[in-house]
Write a protein that binds this DNA or RNA. Structure first.
Length: 818
RNA sequence: GCGGAAGUGGCGGAACUGGCAGACGCGCAGGCCUCAGAAGCCUGUGGGGGAAACCUCGUGGGAGUUCAAAUCUCCCCUUCCGCACCA
């Protein structure tokens, strides 16, 4: 009698053994080719969610596969341990953020271990550890030295619920809400620290040399938002020496300007407004300010504005045009002012219609009849009404006008980016202190490197005031100036937690390195990351920041490459059984621990990988997981069953049977190898299921033969990355040397993998009329012959003349009648 | 509005480079086993017609290219995601 598959005891047993043996420790400088496989580290929110499993179990399988293929694989894990939830818990439950975080980490470590993944826990990184965050501070100081970190007064997005500023990337949607809590953000003018990511904008648009999903590339490109144009000066009529600059991507349309618009907050507005317009202008400014602070009411807001009573001069022809303020011009983009060219810009067109401004055509569409335009024409055409440029194709005119402006010093070519510098100041406690002091005598003073880390005080008080506890903490705030020795104040803001994740992949290389962010010797061996996996929701945040950070590190001489991760894969999102996003309020949350406790981790792993393509995500299905359970059960029966009954093979297998079995074995190796290579776990498992179905049918006859032994050994090896515990147990039962995970990945024989007999499809005029089994080596002429002699083919040819016979060797023959 | 991805049975999904549509699994139906149930095992399972052999329709819709289209081209529809007055 075969012992039943009992995942729970098997899994506990092997996890303990692997841990004791240090099976998963990645060795620096191993002669084998290295493979650095990284999955985005989790935030220690408290409990491991099924989403964590979906992100991590397949990546573990891929890492295991790589290792069996002969790579020295590093597969590290850590915790993204700073962040707001810890501080909120502190206020609500009177528990220190450090305690809360470390308790959660302890719980999650145990849950993560239950997965049976090959993480190298010796390399664990916890970002709230001063030994980690001191290097955040060190990097900050290096950037400060290089002018890449700076402080500026700027209107910033502020979340009134979380009481902190947010990076632009953390403000989402049309309503401009906080990505964390959904509260509409407001604008505040504050002195804040920024990192100069815009200095790398152009380089961040270059994705050559890395294999990242198209999706992420497009998101980053849109986010960076490069536009090439011309910035030029508009002088003000009657105000000698006064002017403002505008940016346009369409210098070719400059002769069509019939008005100019300033953003309502533009600094020149007050000065240029005519006395009789002041009341109206003030009223509009007030309205605009309110609207950007309060939520926006509708998407189809009518474009409006107010004439300020001043006129600008078109630099090309000295024509006077009225100046308006309007809130469709944003102070934060370009120069905060635009040329109004209604014939060739949709927004300007609406505006001109509303205020009855002229709409002269200056770019004639290809078949323009001279009629007034019904809408803005945005395409190319022939220049008209444009003085000396008339008759030029507009693309040429673009360059000619840009040249002319540069020659006459009216303006110059300019590139603008939508990307803003990275605002990193957070008015919160639970983050990395910014290592800066303010001294009344010396000004802004960076903390000397030797004084790092600037530690978070542990005795802070957490009150629901909205103020950072650091601000109230005298012992932290008051400090002696390292330059003059006088009284100085510490910066009390902390860093955005995206700083932590911008370089954590480097820390894994040497997590205990005391003198540097990481040790360059093992770094040279391991870096960069070969394969990164994680959610696409980080496309314009973490994944952009870490690219920026790596480029900075390269320019600091810390690494020799400019891209942190060579390959990126974004897994999908696992949904509740109802197809909706999992949430406590919906009550559709799946708890992986429950399934692990009853069915075992291997079943959960196999199910998550079988559910569909990894990047697709999809709903959890509690019936579906039973299918995965049945599959592993069948594997157990066919392997363990035949292992114990090997002596008693009944009938002698036929030569055909042996050949067939070996064909199936090698064909399955080929399929699984290719599928795992491409992260197609679902089809890899399907191939193994087919193999198991085949083996189950042939067990009686084949068990005990060498071909059978090969088959079941192979099955166990192929299954090892997916179901590591089951594979280890079965491997032991088969008498294999410990550990199955140290075995070489099976190689396939291409000749055996190819079938000797294939189904040849016979078509007449593209319709399938018969299928015949033929030798795979059948020649084209023979196939043709067989098809033409086939009774069913003859029947459908029905005496008509044969016009053509298309033969696809090994696949089909199509007989085409005349 | 702009940008991106995707539409295949009751469901999740498979299909190499254009070459048998629906692998594998779930569900469902029938059967075996059982006192009974659970589990397990076997068989069947896209629609229509037919007793059957078999015929026919069929990959969101419409056109096209081709001996051959889920796959390539064009137009349209729908869904999801991202950005959203970016000059």
């Amino acid at each position: 009698m075969v012992q039943r598959y009992d995942p729970v005891s098997i899994e506990a047993k092997w996890q303990a053994r692997w841990e004791a043996d240090g099976l998963h420790h990645a060795r620096d400088f191993d002669p084998a080719p290295k493979w650095y496989f990284l999955t985005m580290y989790p935030y220690p929110s408290g409990d491991l969610h099924i989403g964590h499993w979906y992100a991590m179990a397949p990546s573990d399988a891929a890492a295991r596969f790589k290792r069996m293929q002969g790579y020295n694989v590093m597969f590290p894990i850590g915790f993204d341990a700073f962040g707001l939830p810890a501080e909120n818990a502190a206020i609500q439950h009177k528990i220190h953020p450090y305690r809360w975080t470390m308790d959660n980490i302890a719980r999650m470590r145990a849950q993560l271990r239950s997965m049976g993944a090959m993480w190298d826990w010796q390399r664990e990184v916890v970002t709230c550890d001063p030994d980690y965050y001191r290097w955040n501070q060190w990097f900050f100081l290096k950037m400060y030295e290089k002018g890449l970190a700076y402080r500026a007064l700027a209107p910033v997005d502020w979340c009134p619920t979380d009481n902190t500023t947010l990076a632009r990337e953390q403000v989402v949607g049309e309503e401009r809400v906080c990505e964390r809590c959904g509260t509409p953000v407001i604008k505040k003018n504050l002195e804040q620290w920024f990192l100069r990511i815009t200095a790398y904008a152009d380089e961040l648009l270059d994705f050559s040399g890395i294999e990242w999903p198209e999706r992420v590339r497009v998101l980053q490109e849109n986010w960076i938002g490069k536009s090439v144009g011309v910035e030029f000066e508009l002088k003000i009529a009657g105000h000698a020496g006064v002017g403002f600059r505008v940016f346009t991507t369409r210098p070719d349309t400059v002769y069509g300007m019939t008005f100019a618009v300033l953003a309502p907050e533009h600094p020149l507005v007050d000065r240029l407004t005519a006395p009789d317009r002041r009341a109206q202008v003030e009223a509009y400014k007030f309205k605009a300010a309110r609207e950007s602070d309060i939520e926006r009411m509708s998407t189809e807001k009518e474009r409006d504005g107010v004439f300020i009573g001043a006129y600008a001069l078109n630099p090309m022809n000295q024509e006077q045009v009225p100046i308006f303020i309007a809130d469709y011009v944003l102070l934060t983009y370009g120069t905060g002012a635009i040329q109004g060219v209604p014939a060739h810009d949709a927004r300007d067109f609406d505006f001109a219609k509303k205020y009855r401004l002229p709409i002269p055509v200056v770019i004639a569409p290809p078949s323009w009849d001279g009629a007034p335009p019904r809408e803005a024409y945005l395409g190319e055409g022939t220049m008209v009404n444009s003085g000396p440029f008339d008759g030029m194709p507009s693309a040429m005119g673009w360059q000619a006008i840009a040249d002319s402006m540069e020659q006459h010093r009216l303006g110059e070519r300019k590139v603008n980016y939508r990307l803003h510098d990275w605002l990193i100041s957070r008015q919160r406690y639970w983050g990395t202190p910014i290592p800066i002091l303010y001294c009344p005598r010396c000004g802004t003073v960076p903390v000397p490197e030797t004084d790092l880390p600037v530690r978070l005080p542990m005795d802070a008080e957490f009150l629901p005031t909205g103020e950072s506890p650091l601000k109230q903490h005298e012992g932290f705030r008051k400090v002696a100036c390292p330059t003059c020795g006088g009284e100085a104040e510490r910066e009390t803001d902390t860093m955005d937690t995206f700083i932590d994740s911008s370089w954590y992949q480097y820390r894994y290389v040497s997590p205990h390195e005391p003198d540097r962010p990481f040790d360059p010797a093992p770094g040279a061996y391991w870096l960069p990351v070969d394969q990164y996996t994680g959610g696409v929701e980080h496309a314009v945040m973490h994944l952009l920041y870490t690219r920026f950070w790596t480029k900075v590190m390269r320019d600091l001489g810390l690494v020799t490459f400019g891209e942190p991760m060579t390959r990126l894969f974004n897994q999908g999102v696992i949904l509740g059984e109802d197809g909706e996003k999992m949430s406590k309020s919906r009550g559709n949350v799946v708890n992986p621990d429950d399934y692990v406790a009853t069915m075992g981790a291997d079943v959960v792993r196999a199910y998550l990988m079988f559910i569909g393509p990894w990047d697709g995500g999809g709903p959890w299905n509690s019936r579906g997981i039973e299918g995965a359970q049945r599959f592993l059960q069948r594997v157990w029966m066919v392997v363990a069953g035949s292992a114990s009954s090997e002596r008693g093979a009944s009938a002698a297998p036929s030569a055909n049977g042996t050949r067939d079995l070996r064909h199936w074995t090698h064909r399955t190796i080929k399929r699984v190898t290719e599928d795992l290579h491409g992260f197609h776990f679902n089809t890899a498992i399907a191939a193994m299921m087919e193999f198991v179905n085949f083996l189950t049918k042939g067990k009686e006859v084949m068990a005990g033969t060498p071909a059978w032994r090969e088959a079941i050994r192979t099955l166990v090896l192929l299954l090892a990355p997916i179901a590591p515990h089951l594979a280890e147990e079965l491997w032991e039962k088969l008498g294999g040397p410990y550990s199955v995970h140290r075995q070489a990945w099976p190689a396939y024989d291409d000749t055996l993998a190819r079938a000797e007999l294939v189904t040849l499809v016979l078509q007449v005029n593209g319709r399938v009329r018969d299928r015949i089994m033929v030798s795979a080596e059948l020649s084209e002429a023979e196939a043709r012959q067989l098809a033409l002699q086939n009774e069913r083919v003859k029947k459908f040819v029905n005496g008509k003349s044969v016009a053509d016979v298309v033969v696809v060797p090994g696949r089909l023959v199509n007989v085409v009648t005349g």
